[in-house]
């Protein structure tokens, strides 16, 4: 941990992740729960954002319920073409994650776009431009999506 979190930070982070009130003044409600002033909640959140611990506060959507199609893709890219290929992928609309991984398939990215047809079109274009095969692995079943961390039990995992 880059910076020490005090008990109030820890409790606040858990509330922010798991039970952020849907109210007109959510930070005031959190302040009351923590027994501090609203201003202090706002200051603490601003600090944790500037330190990089909090990425953002908002919603995570279910892309398929919004009518979008998403898939996990992988490519086997020769060493000397990795940079150019990664750059090409990064520029595609709807690519949110793109990583180099230790495997024969070494470049992995996620694509979320408006339709199945758009997925096909974009991947076909990528194959044409790169001259490399792209494998597409859409999810057929979701067992878990949970991106919250218990900040009060840092040392108990």
């Amino acid at each position: 941990m880059k910076n020490m979190l005090d008990k109030t930070d820890q409790v606040m982070l858990n509330i922010l992740q798991n039970s952020l009130p849907l109210s007109v003044q959510p930070y005031k409600d959190i302040a009351q729960e923590l027994g501090i002033e609203e201003d202090e909640v706002l200051k603490r959140i601003a600090r944790l954002k500037s330190e990089g611990l909090i990425r953002r506060i908002g919603g995570i959507m279910n892309s398929s319920k919004l009518g979008f199609s998403s898939t996990l893709c992988a490519m086997s890219v020769p060493e000397d073409r990795i940079e150019a290929t990664a750059e090409l992928i990064n520029q595609m609309t709807g690519v949110t994650h793109n990583y180099l991984r230790e495997h024969h398939y070494n470049v992995w990215f996620t694509l979320t776009v408006r339709s199945q047809a758009e997925v096909k079109k974009q991947l076909k274009e990528l194959e044409e431009v790169s001259g490399l095969k792209v494998i597409s692995m859409p999810a057929s079943k979701v067992y878990k999506i949970n991106v919250s961390f218990d900040m009060e039990k840092q040392n108990e995992l």
Binding site: Q17, R56, I57, G59, I60, M61, V147
Partner: peptide, 8 residues
């Protein structure tokens, strides 16, 4: 909306 709150 699948989840609502802070993303760390």
């Amino acid at each position: 909306i699948r989840r609502w709150g802070a993303v760390l």
